[in-house]
Amino acid sequence: MSNFTPLSALAGGALIGLAAAIYILGLGRVAGVSGILGSLLRPRSGDAPAQFAFVAGLIAAPLLMGAAGAPLPAISVDASLPAVIVGGVLVGYGTRLGGGCTSGHGVCGIARFSTRSLAATALFMAAGAAVVFVARHVIGG
């Protein structure tokens, strides 16, 4: 467990939880990133200004932290370019078909004890772990 960072994980997680709490208590909305991105692709969404603002905040946060002198993690994408493209399409299509992603199902859904979200989280984690296992230890091993 050489790279295990429990304290920053808990602190960062609490911030993500705080954001989801602000969204539901203030705006009455589920803070699911795939749902927000997906509805921005729909014409005539009445919530578009708020949803754009949320996405802008997501992008700006690490930039502002970096400008303020906070250490930023490196972004290491080891997957090949074709894998990045296929992975992106699967994540985009799959999260919309499944009705949520790590934030919508994994955090907000489980927070309200939704069995659908618990099942979705178990499935995407199992599928992700299976792909990593095959890629690293069957093909790459």
Binding site: V86, V89, V91, G94, L97
Partner: peptide
Amino acid sequence: VGAVMFGIGWGLVGFCPG
């Protein structure tokens, strides 16, 4: 089906939407 598709893409690259 959607969750499994998402998980496959997530495992290929390591990015989820957020």
